[in-house]
């Protein structure tokens, strides 16, 4: 469905010189390699989390895939079409949500924006009604349709933005930071909707985000890029398995001032009746740590947590030095 091979993109960026006056007359350019030799494939119905730190090349990839930018070299075929060669044909197949930009008309009711999109995509009244009904039900828009966009909260607006990107029933949906700035309730609503539309309409979703909870909730597969290069491509569970090196054990015990000393553990935090230990899974394992703990203290409660996905990603970034 999506085939990307050896995609590269470099930008010429004017270097800032000392004075504004000097830079008017002579300019030096610096070449920034935004993407280096990226390749991947996606199958219909997949949800892929496309992650990486700021400036890694996420947006550049999305822009190439949606026909906004032309790469220097490489191949990109989406449903058999090269986006930048047949832009108009291509964009009928895709929906794009830029989380930080609106595509709705500010001063008029939401439904007017939707109606205009119906005309832009030349949708038949029957298809339009059917899609709109589905979107209104799933995203709970019934009460918002007649409200001017400027009066909507950010969460309400994002739901409308997503609906606007799907009104022409695209086969692929690109979401560039769809949950940025949203409150918890809205985030969960957006995530649930993406899951639903993916399951029921077989929409393929490419998602960029900095919120690892989005990835955990949605993406079966992640592609990690940094400094324009692809670093990891695989499922999340695998990433966990390969990169989790520590677990966190929190113990509550009857007050005891004797210091804790357990092989293979680092004490992150210790007070009179609580301690947090970081267990190094290379040196030891969780059962033997618990065994040791029960020998040393009289335990009230104990809990074991995996490293949050955020920390794994931070470690990954560190490992790849990005």
């Amino acid at each position: 469905m999506i085939e990307i091979e050896n995609l590269s993109k470099a930008f010429q960026v004017a270097k800032r010189k000392k004075g504004a006056f000097v830079s008017l007359f002579s300019r030096e350019y610096e070449t920034i390699h935004a993407l280096k030799d990226i390749s991947f494939k996606m199958e219909p119905g997949e949800i892929v989390g496309y992650i990486g730190p700021n400036g890694a090349g996420k947006s550049t990839t999305i822009k190439i895939m949606s026909g906004i930018l032309v790469p220097n070299t490489g191949k990109c075929e989406i449903l058999g079409i090269t986006p930048w060669k047949s832009r108009i044909e291509h964009v009928r197949n895709i929906g794009v949500v830029f989380g930080q930009r609106t595509q709705l008309w500010w001063d008029v009711p939401v439904i007017d924006s939707f109606n205009l999109l119906r005309d832009i995509y030349k949708l038949s009244e029957v298809d339009y009604r059917r899609t709109l009904d589905q979107l209104v039900t799933y995203l709970d828009l019934a009460l918002l349709l007649n409200t001017p966009v400027r009066q909507l909260s950010l969460g309400q607006r994002m739901r409308c933005e997503i609906a606007a990107a799907l009104i022409h029933s695209p086969k692929i949906l690109f979401l560039d930071e769809p949950t940025i700035g949203l409150d918890a309730v809205s985030k969960i609503a957006v995530r649930n909707f993406i899951k639903k539309i993916n399951a029921e309409n077989q929409v393929t979703v490419v998602l960029t985000t900095h919120d690892m909870n989005d990835i955990e909730a949605l993406a079966g597969r992640i592609i990690l890029i940094g400094k324009g290069e692809k670093l990891y491509d695989g499922d999340l569970a695998n990433l966990r398995g390969n990169f989790i090196s520590h677990k966190r054990v929190t113990v509550d015990f009857v007050e005891n001032t004797a210091p804790l000393d357990i092989f293979g553990c680092e004490v992150l935090h210790a007070s009179g009746e609580r301690a947090v230990l970081l267990v190094d899974l290379v040196k030891t394992n969780v059962p033997s740590v618990i065994h040791e703990l029960t020998n040393q203290k009289s335990i009230i409660d104990i809990s074991v947590d995996s490293q949050p996905i955020e920390e794994i990603i931070v470690n990954l970034y560190r490992e790849y030095q990005i």
């Binding site: 822009k63 949606s66 026909g67 906004i68 832009r87 108009i88 044909e89 964009v91 009928r92 895709i94 794009v96 830029f98 930009r101 595509q103 832009i120 995509y121």
Partner: peptide, 11 residues
């Protein structure tokens, strides 16, 4: 960057 928006529309 709003021009990007226009490029993803079939017009």
């Amino acid at each position: 960057g709003d021009f990007d928006r226009l490029l993803v529309r079939p017009l």
